[in-house]
Amino acid sequence: MPTVSMTVNGKSVGKTVEDRTLLVQFLRQDLGLTGTHVGCDTSQCGACVVDVNGHAVKACTLLAAQTEGARVTTIEGLAAADGALHPMQQAFMDNHALQCGFCTPGMVMSAVDLLKRHPNPDEQTIRRELEGNLCRCTGYHNIVKAVQQAAKAMAR
């Protein structure tokens, strides 16, 4: 069994795991970071999206071993050290962009990534860019509004 080391939310971690361990299992089970969720088994729902070396990826479709040495940010690591919410988290709260909260961590991580590539997105771009994240509660209406608010807040 290999030892996997990486930096997660700014902390160095190392664990010995089975080769077949997925990144999402490593986060949830080995590190106890249960904010990253598993909502499907075909890489479609996006509840498991995390940031690896600056890119949003689906942690259910990545081996922990593949992220050896990487910088990983999960939903637990998004808020500032002083606890202040990231503008995207704040925008989700302000716009009621979450209901049951299950898709939310992945949705927020994808939305943050989206703004890196499209700092000033129109509605169509937001909807297209959220293609990899399913939400069953909100009908996406308020998620779109939240991303727009966050884009404005982050442009300031």
């Binding site: 249960t34 709260m93 927020v108």
Partner: peptide, 19 residues
């Protein structure tokens, strides 16, 4: 009113059964 629930869900601190 903004929701009481949201802070825990937005920061990955919800407690779902699988957690």
């Amino acid at each position: 009113v903004k929701r009481k629930e949201d802070f825990r869900f937005l920061t990955g601190q919800g407690t779902y059964t699988d957690d």
